[in-house]
Design a protein around this nucleic acid. Structure first.
Lengths: 237, 237
DNA sequence: AGCGCACTACGTACACTGTACGTAACTAGG
DNA sequence: CCTAGTTACGTACAGTGTACGTAGTGCGCT
Protein backbone atom coordinates (compact mmCIF):
# COMPACT_ATOMS: atom_id res chain seq x y z
CA UNK A 1 0.00 0.00 0.00
CA UNK A 2 3.03 2.23 0.22
CA UNK A 3 4.05 4.72 -2.46
CA UNK A 4 1.01 4.18 -4.64
CA UNK A 5 1.36 7.66 -6.16
CA UNK A 6 4.88 7.20 -7.54
CA UNK A 7 3.57 6.56 -11.01
CA UNK A 8 3.22 8.96 -13.91
CA UNK A 9 -0.26 10.02 -14.89
CA UNK A 10 -1.89 11.58 -17.92
CA UNK A 11 -4.57 13.98 -16.81
CA UNK A 12 -6.85 13.03 -19.70
CA UNK A 13 -7.12 9.54 -18.26
CA UNK A 14 -8.66 10.83 -15.04
CA UNK A 15 -12.43 10.71 -15.23
CA UNK A 16 -13.95 14.13 -14.61
CA UNK A 17 -16.37 12.49 -12.20
CA UNK A 18 -16.18 9.16 -10.43
CA UNK A 19 -19.66 8.93 -8.95
CA UNK A 20 -18.53 8.72 -5.37
CA UNK A 21 -18.56 11.81 -3.17
CA UNK A 22 -20.03 15.28 -3.66
CA UNK A 23 -20.28 16.42 -7.25
CA UNK A 24 -17.38 18.63 -8.29
CA UNK A 25 -18.19 22.33 -8.33
CA UNK A 26 -16.21 23.01 -11.49
CA UNK A 27 -15.52 21.29 -14.75
CA UNK A 28 -12.14 20.95 -16.38
CA UNK A 29 -13.35 23.45 -18.98
CA UNK A 30 -14.18 25.97 -16.24
CA UNK A 31 -10.69 25.67 -14.83
CA UNK A 32 -8.98 25.89 -18.19
CA UNK A 33 -11.09 28.93 -19.09
CA UNK A 34 -10.17 30.68 -15.84
CA UNK A 35 -6.47 30.04 -16.38
CA UNK A 36 -6.65 31.19 -20.00
CA UNK A 37 -8.49 34.34 -18.93
CA UNK A 38 -5.70 35.18 -16.49
CA UNK A 39 -2.92 34.40 -18.96
CA UNK A 40 -4.56 36.55 -21.62
CA UNK A 41 -5.12 39.48 -19.30
CA UNK A 42 -2.04 39.42 -17.09
CA UNK A 43 0.47 37.20 -18.82
CA UNK A 44 1.55 33.62 -18.25
CA UNK A 45 3.51 34.43 -15.12
CA UNK A 46 0.30 35.51 -13.41
CA UNK A 47 -1.07 32.00 -13.79
CA UNK A 48 -0.42 30.65 -10.31
CA UNK A 49 -2.49 28.07 -8.49
CA UNK A 50 -3.61 30.77 -6.07
CA UNK A 51 -4.72 33.15 -8.80
CA UNK A 52 -6.57 30.55 -10.78
CA UNK A 53 -8.30 29.32 -7.65
CA UNK A 54 -9.29 32.88 -6.78
CA UNK A 55 -10.58 33.45 -10.30
CA UNK A 56 -12.68 30.32 -9.95
CA UNK A 57 -13.80 31.38 -6.50
CA UNK A 58 -12.47 28.44 -4.53
CA UNK A 59 -9.67 27.76 -2.09
CA UNK A 60 -6.19 27.23 -3.46
CA UNK A 61 -5.85 23.62 -2.43
CA UNK A 62 -9.22 22.69 -3.86
CA UNK A 63 -7.69 23.12 -7.28
CA UNK A 64 -5.51 20.11 -6.60
CA UNK A 65 -8.58 17.92 -6.64
CA UNK A 66 -8.90 18.65 -10.32
CA UNK A 67 -5.29 19.20 -11.32
CA UNK A 68 -2.69 17.06 -9.57
CA UNK A 69 0.27 19.20 -10.67
CA UNK A 70 0.63 22.64 -12.11
CA UNK A 71 1.96 21.15 -15.30
CA UNK A 72 -1.42 19.57 -15.84
CA UNK A 73 -3.01 22.99 -15.59
CA UNK A 74 -0.80 23.99 -18.48
CA UNK A 75 -1.98 20.99 -20.46
CA UNK A 76 -5.56 22.03 -19.80
CA UNK A 77 -4.81 25.53 -21.08
CA UNK A 78 -3.20 24.29 -24.28
CA UNK A 79 -6.08 21.95 -24.90
CA UNK A 80 -8.55 24.79 -24.36
CA UNK A 81 -6.96 27.02 -26.99
CA UNK A 82 -6.70 23.98 -29.27
CA UNK A 83 -10.49 23.94 -29.20
CA UNK A 84 -10.48 27.30 -30.97
CA UNK A 85 -9.47 25.62 -34.18
CA UNK A 86 -12.31 25.80 -36.65
CA UNK A 87 -11.99 22.83 -38.95
CA UNK A 88 -13.55 22.86 -42.39
CA UNK A 89 -14.03 19.80 -44.53
CA UNK A 90 -10.97 19.09 -46.64
CA UNK A 91 -11.25 20.77 -50.03
CA UNK A 92 -9.20 18.26 -51.96
CA UNK A 93 -6.35 20.77 -52.31
CA UNK A 94 -4.06 19.53 -49.53
CA UNK A 95 -1.67 22.44 -49.92
CA UNK A 96 -4.35 25.05 -49.47
CA UNK A 97 -5.87 23.15 -46.56
CA UNK A 98 -2.56 22.83 -44.73
CA UNK A 99 -1.82 26.51 -45.27
CA UNK A 100 -5.22 27.30 -43.81
CA UNK A 101 -4.45 25.19 -40.75
CA UNK A 102 -1.09 26.86 -40.26
CA UNK A 103 -2.59 30.32 -40.54
CA UNK A 104 -5.30 29.45 -38.11
CA UNK A 105 -2.73 28.23 -35.60
CA UNK A 106 -0.87 31.49 -36.00
CA UNK A 107 -4.03 33.51 -35.43
CA UNK A 108 -4.80 31.55 -32.28
CA UNK A 109 -1.29 32.14 -30.98
CA UNK A 110 -1.67 35.85 -31.59
CA UNK A 111 -4.86 35.74 -29.56
CA UNK A 112 -2.98 33.93 -26.77
CA UNK A 113 0.64 35.10 -26.91
CA UNK A 114 1.71 32.77 -24.11
CA UNK A 115 1.01 29.63 -26.14
CA UNK A 116 4.44 29.28 -27.77
CA UNK A 117 6.19 29.51 -24.42
CA UNK A 118 3.95 26.82 -22.95
CA UNK A 119 4.45 24.56 -25.94
CA UNK A 120 8.16 24.47 -25.26
CA UNK A 121 7.61 22.94 -21.85
CA UNK A 122 4.59 20.69 -22.25
CA UNK A 123 4.72 17.47 -24.15
CA UNK A 124 1.91 15.05 -24.70
CA UNK A 125 -1.19 14.87 -26.81
CA UNK A 126 -4.35 16.42 -25.47
CA UNK A 127 -7.71 15.49 -27.00
CA UNK A 128 -7.74 18.61 -29.13
CA UNK A 129 -4.22 17.92 -30.34
CA UNK A 130 -5.41 14.53 -31.48
CA UNK A 131 -8.39 16.16 -33.20
CA UNK A 132 -5.98 18.51 -34.95
CA UNK A 133 -3.72 15.68 -36.09
CA UNK A 134 -6.69 13.73 -37.36
CA UNK A 135 -7.90 16.75 -39.31
CA UNK A 136 -4.46 17.27 -40.86
CA UNK A 137 -4.36 13.65 -41.96
CA UNK A 138 -7.80 14.13 -43.49
CA UNK A 139 -6.53 17.15 -45.42
CA UNK A 140 -3.56 15.10 -46.62
CA UNK A 141 -5.75 12.25 -47.88
CA UNK A 142 -5.22 13.19 -51.56
CA UNK A 143 -1.47 13.00 -51.11
CA UNK A 144 0.00 9.62 -51.94
CA UNK A 145 2.57 9.26 -49.20
CA UNK A 146 3.02 6.88 -46.27
CA UNK A 147 1.47 8.03 -43.03
CA UNK A 148 4.88 8.25 -41.45
CA UNK A 149 5.89 10.91 -43.95
CA UNK A 150 2.63 12.78 -43.47
CA UNK A 151 3.22 12.83 -39.74
CA UNK A 152 6.71 14.17 -40.30
CA UNK A 153 5.23 16.89 -42.44
CA UNK A 154 2.68 17.92 -39.84
CA UNK A 155 5.39 17.96 -37.18
CA UNK A 156 7.72 20.03 -39.31
CA UNK A 157 5.00 22.46 -40.29
CA UNK A 158 3.86 22.91 -36.69
CA UNK A 159 7.42 23.46 -35.61
CA UNK A 160 7.84 26.20 -38.16
CA UNK A 161 4.57 27.85 -37.20
CA UNK A 162 5.49 27.78 -33.53
CA UNK A 163 9.02 29.13 -33.90
CA UNK A 164 7.98 31.86 -36.30
CA UNK A 165 5.08 32.99 -34.20
CA UNK A 166 7.16 32.75 -31.05
CA UNK A 167 9.60 35.19 -32.59
CA UNK A 168 6.85 37.56 -33.56
CA UNK A 169 5.47 37.53 -30.05
CA UNK A 170 8.76 37.42 -28.19
CA UNK A 171 9.12 40.99 -27.04
CA UNK A 172 5.36 41.46 -26.69
CA UNK A 173 5.08 38.73 -24.05
CA UNK A 174 8.39 39.67 -22.42
CA UNK A 175 7.60 43.30 -21.83
CA UNK A 176 4.35 42.43 -20.08
CA UNK A 177 6.09 42.22 -16.73
CA UNK A 178 8.77 44.81 -17.46
CA UNK A 179 8.65 48.46 -16.42
CA UNK A 180 9.41 49.59 -19.96
CA UNK A 181 7.65 49.40 -23.28
CA UNK A 182 8.12 47.02 -26.17
CA UNK A 183 9.46 49.88 -28.32
CA UNK A 184 12.09 50.84 -25.77
CA UNK A 185 13.19 47.23 -25.45
CA UNK A 186 13.48 46.80 -29.19
CA UNK A 187 15.29 50.10 -29.58
CA UNK A 188 17.93 49.08 -27.05
CA UNK A 189 18.42 45.68 -28.66
CA UNK A 190 18.77 47.18 -32.13
CA UNK A 191 21.21 49.78 -30.82
CA UNK A 192 23.34 47.03 -29.27
CA UNK A 193 23.16 45.00 -32.44
CA UNK A 194 24.31 47.80 -34.70
CA UNK A 195 27.07 48.74 -32.27
CA UNK A 196 28.33 45.18 -32.47
CA UNK A 197 28.08 45.03 -36.22
CA UNK A 198 29.88 48.36 -36.42
CA UNK A 199 32.94 46.89 -34.73
CA UNK A 200 33.74 45.13 -37.99
CA UNK A 201 33.92 41.73 -36.34
CA UNK A 202 31.02 40.49 -38.45
CA UNK A 203 31.64 41.68 -42.00
CA UNK A 204 29.00 39.60 -43.74
CA UNK A 205 26.42 40.40 -41.09
CA UNK A 206 27.28 44.05 -41.68
CA UNK A 207 26.65 43.65 -45.39
CA UNK A 208 23.38 41.95 -44.63
CA UNK A 209 22.29 44.89 -42.51
CA UNK A 210 23.35 47.35 -45.21
CA UNK A 211 21.35 45.56 -47.88
CA UNK A 212 18.27 47.68 -48.28
CA UNK A 213 15.45 45.19 -48.26
CA UNK A 214 12.62 47.53 -47.40
CA UNK A 215 10.47 47.10 -44.31
CA UNK A 216 10.47 43.60 -42.81
CA UNK A 217 7.17 41.90 -43.50
CA UNK A 218 6.94 39.15 -40.92
CA UNK A 219 3.75 37.73 -42.34
CA UNK A 220 5.27 37.42 -45.81
CA UNK A 221 8.30 35.67 -44.30
CA UNK A 222 5.95 33.27 -42.54
CA UNK A 223 4.16 32.62 -45.81
CA UNK A 224 7.41 31.92 -47.64
CA UNK A 225 8.64 29.57 -44.92
CA UNK A 226 5.43 27.55 -45.06
CA UNK A 227 5.64 27.38 -48.83
CA UNK A 228 9.17 26.07 -48.76
CA UNK A 229 8.37 23.37 -46.23
CA UNK A 230 5.33 22.24 -48.20
CA UNK A 231 7.42 22.22 -51.37
CA UNK A 232 9.75 19.78 -49.72
CA UNK A 233 6.91 17.25 -49.53
CA UNK A 234 5.22 17.90 -52.86
CA UNK A 235 5.81 14.89 -55.15
CA UNK A 236 4.67 17.01 -58.13
CA UNK A 237 7.76 19.20 -57.95
CA UNK B 1 17.22 61.76 -10.89
CA UNK B 2 14.19 59.59 -10.27
CA UNK B 3 13.65 56.20 -11.92
CA UNK B 4 17.00 56.07 -13.65
CA UNK B 5 16.91 52.27 -13.73
CA UNK B 6 13.61 52.02 -15.63
CA UNK B 7 15.38 51.39 -18.89
CA UNK B 8 16.01 48.11 -20.63
CA UNK B 9 19.55 46.82 -20.76
CA UNK B 10 21.48 44.31 -22.81
CA UNK B 11 23.98 42.54 -20.61
CA UNK B 12 26.60 42.41 -23.36
CA UNK B 13 26.77 46.20 -23.28
CA UNK B 14 27.91 46.20 -19.65
CA UNK B 15 31.69 46.35 -19.44
CA UNK B 16 33.05 43.44 -17.41
CA UNK B 17 35.16 45.90 -15.45
CA UNK B 18 34.81 49.66 -15.12
CA UNK B 19 38.08 50.50 -13.37
CA UNK B 20 36.54 52.02 -10.29
CA UNK B 21 36.16 49.95 -7.12
CA UNK B 22 37.62 46.58 -6.09
CA UNK B 23 38.37 44.19 -8.93
CA UNK B 24 35.60 41.67 -9.49
CA UNK B 25 36.33 38.21 -8.12
CA UNK B 26 34.71 36.39 -11.01
CA UNK B 27 34.46 36.75 -14.74
CA UNK B 28 31.30 36.39 -16.76
CA UNK B 29 32.75 33.14 -18.11
CA UNK B 30 33.19 31.82 -14.54
CA UNK B 31 29.57 32.54 -13.76
CA UNK B 32 28.26 31.05 -16.98
CA UNK B 33 30.38 27.94 -16.44
CA UNK B 34 29.05 27.50 -12.91
CA UNK B 35 25.45 27.81 -14.06
CA UNK B 36 26.03 25.41 -16.96
CA UNK B 37 27.64 22.92 -14.61
CA UNK B 38 24.57 22.98 -12.37
CA UNK B 39 22.11 22.72 -15.25
CA UNK B 40 24.00 19.78 -16.73
CA UNK B 41 24.22 17.93 -13.44
CA UNK B 42 20.90 18.73 -11.78
CA UNK B 43 18.64 20.12 -14.48
CA UNK B 44 17.62 23.62 -15.41
CA UNK B 45 15.29 23.98 -12.44
CA UNK B 46 18.24 23.67 -10.09
CA UNK B 47 19.74 26.83 -11.58
CA UNK B 48 18.73 29.35 -8.95
CA UNK B 49 20.63 32.46 -7.98
CA UNK B 50 21.42 30.86 -4.64
CA UNK B 51 22.78 27.66 -6.13
CA UNK B 52 24.90 29.40 -8.72
CA UNK B 53 26.30 31.72 -6.07
CA UNK B 54 27.10 28.76 -3.85
CA UNK B 55 28.78 26.94 -6.74
CA UNK B 56 30.88 30.04 -7.32
CA UNK B 57 31.57 30.35 -3.62
CA UNK B 58 30.08 33.77 -3.02
CA UNK B 59 27.02 35.25 -1.36
CA UNK B 60 23.75 35.15 -3.21
CA UNK B 61 23.38 38.87 -3.64
CA UNK B 62 26.90 39.29 -4.91
CA UNK B 63 25.78 37.62 -8.09
CA UNK B 64 23.60 40.61 -8.80
CA UNK B 65 26.68 42.72 -9.29
CA UNK B 66 27.42 40.68 -12.39
CA UNK B 67 23.95 39.73 -13.52
CA UNK B 68 21.20 42.30 -13.01
CA UNK B 69 18.34 39.85 -13.56
CA UNK B 70 18.07 36.10 -13.65
CA UNK B 71 17.15 36.29 -17.31
CA UNK B 72 20.63 37.64 -18.01
CA UNK B 73 22.10 34.59 -16.34
CA UNK B 74 20.20 32.53 -18.89
CA UNK B 75 21.67 34.64 -21.69
CA UNK B 76 25.13 33.98 -20.29
CA UNK B 77 24.44 30.25 -20.25
CA UNK B 78 23.25 30.18 -23.84
CA UNK B 79 26.24 32.20 -24.95
CA UNK B 80 28.55 29.81 -23.12
CA UNK B 81 27.22 26.74 -24.91
CA UNK B 82 27.31 28.70 -28.16
CA UNK B 83 31.07 28.86 -27.68
CA UNK B 84 31.20 25.08 -28.06
CA UNK B 85 30.60 25.42 -31.76
CA UNK B 86 33.69 24.39 -33.64
CA UNK B 87 33.69 26.31 -36.90
CA UNK B 88 35.64 25.06 -39.87
CA UNK B 89 36.44 27.12 -42.92
CA UNK B 90 33.65 26.93 -45.48
CA UNK B 91 34.29 24.13 -47.94
CA UNK B 92 32.53 25.69 -50.91
CA UNK B 93 29.69 23.18 -50.63
CA UNK B 94 27.13 25.30 -48.77
CA UNK B 95 24.73 22.40 -48.35
CA UNK B 96 27.29 20.20 -46.65
CA UNK B 97 28.49 23.07 -44.50
CA UNK B 98 25.02 23.97 -43.31
CA UNK B 99 24.26 20.34 -42.54
CA UNK B 100 27.45 20.22 -40.52
CA UNK B 101 26.37 23.28 -38.58
CA UNK B 102 22.94 21.85 -37.89
CA UNK B 103 24.38 18.56 -36.69
CA UNK B 104 26.82 20.33 -34.45
CA UNK B 105 24.00 22.32 -32.90
CA UNK B 106 22.12 19.11 -32.25
CA UNK B 107 25.16 17.52 -30.62
CA UNK B 108 25.60 20.52 -28.35
CA UNK B 109 21.95 20.37 -27.35
CA UNK B 110 22.32 16.72 -26.49
CA UNK B 111 25.25 17.64 -24.30
CA UNK B 112 23.09 20.30 -22.60
CA UNK B 113 19.49 19.08 -22.72
CA UNK B 114 18.16 22.25 -21.13
CA UNK B 115 19.16 24.44 -24.08
CA UNK B 116 15.95 24.09 -26.10
CA UNK B 117 13.80 25.09 -23.13
CA UNK B 118 15.94 28.16 -22.52
CA UNK B 119 15.84 29.14 -26.16
CA UNK B 120 12.08 29.41 -26.01
CA UNK B 121 12.25 32.10 -23.35
CA UNK B 122 15.34 34.10 -24.17
CA UNK B 123 15.51 36.39 -27.13
CA UNK B 124 18.41 38.50 -28.23
CA UNK B 125 21.75 37.96 -29.87
CA UNK B 126 24.70 37.11 -27.71
CA UNK B 127 28.24 37.47 -29.07
CA UNK B 128 28.45 33.79 -29.89
CA UNK B 129 25.09 33.90 -31.64
CA UNK B 130 26.50 36.65 -33.84
CA UNK B 131 29.60 34.58 -34.48
CA UNK B 132 27.37 31.69 -35.50
CA UNK B 133 25.31 33.83 -37.85
CA UNK B 134 28.45 35.25 -39.40
CA UNK B 135 29.81 31.76 -39.94
CA UNK B 136 26.57 30.61 -41.57
CA UNK B 137 26.68 33.57 -43.94
CA UNK B 138 30.25 32.64 -44.78
CA UNK B 139 29.15 29.10 -45.59
CA UNK B 140 26.39 30.48 -47.79
CA UNK B 141 28.77 32.71 -49.74
CA UNK B 142 28.66 30.50 -52.87
CA UNK B 143 24.87 30.73 -52.93
CA UNK B 144 23.58 33.54 -55.11
CA UNK B 145 20.72 34.82 -53.03
CA UNK B 146 20.00 38.10 -51.26
CA UNK B 147 21.14 38.26 -47.67
CA UNK B 148 17.55 38.56 -46.51
CA UNK B 149 16.78 35.14 -47.97
CA UNK B 150 19.91 33.65 -46.45
CA UNK B 151 18.90 34.97 -43.06
CA UNK B 152 15.48 33.45 -43.47
CA UNK B 153 17.13 30.16 -44.29
CA UNK B 154 19.34 30.23 -41.21
CA UNK B 155 16.35 31.11 -39.04
CA UNK B 156 14.23 28.35 -40.52
CA UNK B 157 16.99 25.79 -40.21
CA UNK B 158 17.71 26.71 -36.60
CA UNK B 159 14.03 26.53 -35.80
CA UNK B 160 13.83 23.03 -37.20
CA UNK B 161 16.94 21.92 -35.34
CA UNK B 162 15.59 23.31 -32.09
CA UNK B 163 12.11 21.84 -32.34
CA UNK B 164 13.36 18.44 -33.43
CA UNK B 165 15.97 18.23 -30.73
CA UNK B 166 13.55 19.57 -28.15
CA UNK B 167 11.24 16.69 -28.96
CA UNK B 168 14.04 14.18 -28.67
CA UNK B 169 15.01 15.53 -25.27
CA UNK B 170 11.53 16.24 -24.00
CA UNK B 171 10.96 13.34 -21.65
CA UNK B 172 14.63 13.12 -20.71
CA UNK B 173 14.66 16.65 -19.27
CA UNK B 174 11.16 16.30 -17.81
CA UNK B 175 11.82 13.16 -15.83
CA UNK B 176 14.87 14.69 -14.14
CA UNK B 177 12.73 16.08 -11.35
CA UNK B 178 10.12 13.36 -11.36
CA UNK B 179 10.03 10.35 -9.03
CA UNK B 180 9.65 7.98 -11.97
CA UNK B 181 11.79 6.96 -14.92
CA UNK B 182 11.70 8.09 -18.51
CA UNK B 183 10.56 4.62 -19.58
CA UNK B 184 7.62 4.60 -17.17
CA UNK B 185 6.57 8.06 -18.33
CA UNK B 186 6.72 7.07 -21.99
CA UNK B 187 4.90 3.81 -21.34
CA UNK B 188 2.02 5.66 -19.68
CA UNK B 189 1.78 8.21 -22.49
CA UNK B 190 1.81 5.53 -25.15
CA UNK B 191 -0.82 3.55 -23.27
CA UNK B 192 -3.04 6.64 -23.10
CA UNK B 193 -2.46 7.35 -26.76
CA UNK B 194 -3.42 3.91 -27.93
CA UNK B 195 -6.45 3.85 -25.65
CA UNK B 196 -7.60 7.08 -27.31
CA UNK B 197 -6.92 5.83 -30.79
CA UNK B 198 -8.76 2.62 -29.93
CA UNK B 199 -11.98 4.56 -29.30
CA UNK B 200 -12.33 4.97 -33.04
CA UNK B 201 -12.63 8.74 -32.80
CA UNK B 202 -9.48 9.17 -34.86
CA UNK B 203 -9.70 6.72 -37.74
CA UNK B 204 -6.83 8.08 -39.83
CA UNK B 205 -4.59 8.35 -36.81
CA UNK B 206 -5.47 4.74 -36.08
CA UNK B 207 -4.41 3.74 -39.58
CA UNK B 208 -1.19 5.69 -39.14
CA UNK B 209 -0.43 3.75 -35.97
CA UNK B 210 -1.22 0.46 -37.70
CA UNK B 211 1.10 1.16 -40.58
CA UNK B 212 4.16 -0.90 -39.83
CA UNK B 213 7.01 1.48 -40.39
CA UNK B 214 9.67 -0.32 -38.42
CA UNK B 215 11.48 1.27 -35.49
CA UNK B 216 11.37 5.06 -35.38
CA UNK B 217 14.77 6.48 -36.28
CA UNK B 218 14.78 10.00 -34.88
CA UNK B 219 18.14 10.84 -36.35
CA UNK B 220 17.02 9.83 -39.83
CA UNK B 221 13.88 11.96 -39.43
CA UNK B 222 16.07 14.88 -38.43
CA UNK B 223 18.23 14.31 -41.49
CA UNK B 224 15.23 14.23 -43.81
CA UNK B 225 13.75 17.38 -42.30
CA UNK B 226 17.00 19.27 -42.80
CA UNK B 227 17.22 18.04 -46.37
CA UNK B 228 13.74 19.22 -47.19
CA UNK B 229 14.30 22.67 -45.75
CA UNK B 230 17.56 23.05 -47.64
CA UNK B 231 15.85 21.87 -50.82
CA UNK B 232 13.41 24.70 -50.46
CA UNK B 233 16.27 27.18 -50.88
CA UNK B 234 18.31 25.39 -53.52
CA UNK B 235 18.08 27.30 -56.82
CA UNK B 236 19.48 24.27 -58.65
CA UNK B 237 16.35 22.22 -58.03
C1' DA C 1 -31.63 1.15 5.31
C1' DG C 2 -27.48 2.23 6.58
C1' DC C 3 -22.50 1.51 6.79
C1' DG C 4 -18.23 2.87 4.83
C1' DC C 5 -15.30 4.69 1.51
C1' DA C 6 -13.92 7.66 -1.94
C1' DC C 7 -14.41 11.97 -2.97
C1' DT C 8 -14.71 17.35 -2.36
C1' DA C 9 -13.17 21.38 0.11
C1' DC C 10 -9.79 24.11 2.23
C1' DG C 11 -6.63 26.06 6.01
C1' DT C 12 -2.03 25.68 7.57
C1' DA C 13 2.73 25.04 6.92
C1' DC C 14 7.20 24.42 4.63
C1' DA C 15 10.85 24.89 1.64
C1' DC C 16 12.18 27.58 -1.88
C1' DT C 17 12.23 31.31 -5.30
C1' DG C 18 13.80 36.22 -7.24
C1' DT C 19 15.28 40.39 -5.72
C1' DA C 20 14.89 45.32 -3.13
C1' DC C 21 17.47 47.52 0.25
C1' DG C 22 21.04 48.76 3.53
C1' DT C 23 25.74 48.56 5.13
C1' DA C 24 30.73 47.92 5.12
C1' DA C 25 35.02 47.61 2.68
C1' DC C 26 37.79 48.91 -1.23
C1' DT C 27 40.06 51.38 -5.11
C1' DA C 28 40.93 54.33 -9.10
C1' DG C 29 40.19 59.24 -11.01
C1' DG C 30 39.99 64.11 -9.85
C1' DC D 1 43.88 62.81 -0.37
C1' DC D 2 39.24 62.28 -0.94
C1' DT D 3 35.24 60.88 -2.73
C1' DA D 4 32.26 58.61 -6.06
C1' DG D 5 31.42 54.31 -7.92
C1' DT D 6 32.17 49.39 -7.01
C1' DT D 7 32.15 44.90 -4.83
C1' DA D 8 30.42 41.97 -1.26
C1' DC D 9 26.81 40.16 1.34
C1' DG D 10 23.17 39.68 5.19
C1' DT D 11 18.45 40.51 5.98
C1' DA D 12 13.84 40.74 4.59
C1' DC D 13 9.67 40.33 1.82
C1' DA D 14 6.35 38.87 -1.29
C1' DG D 15 5.31 35.16 -3.82
C1' DT D 16 5.57 30.24 -5.47
C1' DG D 17 4.19 24.93 -5.66
C1' DT D 18 2.40 21.64 -2.90
C1' DA D 19 2.37 17.98 1.31
C1' DC D 20 -0.60 17.07 4.94
C1' DG D 21 -4.50 16.99 8.03
C1' DT D 22 -9.32 17.60 8.90
C1' DA D 23 -14.16 18.09 8.05
C1' DG D 24 -18.12 17.23 5.41
C1' DT D 25 -20.73 14.79 1.52
C1' DG D 26 -23.12 11.41 -1.13
C1' DC D 27 -22.82 6.96 -4.04
C1' DG D 28 -22.39 1.94 -4.00
C1' DC D 29 -22.65 -2.19 -1.48
C1' DT D 30 -24.24 -5.27 1.75
Amino acid sequence: MAGRKAVPEVIWNRPERTGRGPRPSYSRADIAAAAVRIADAQGLDAVSMRHVAAELGCGTMSLYNYVPRKEDLYELMLDAVGAEHNFEDPSGDWRADMLRNAHQTRVIMHRHPWVPRLMAGVYGFSPNTLRYLEHCLACLEPLDLPYSTKMEMVALLNGVVTTYTANELATAERTRSMPWSEEEENAVRIAYLSSQVATGAYPRLAEAFMEDSGPIDLEAMFERALGRVLDGFDPKR
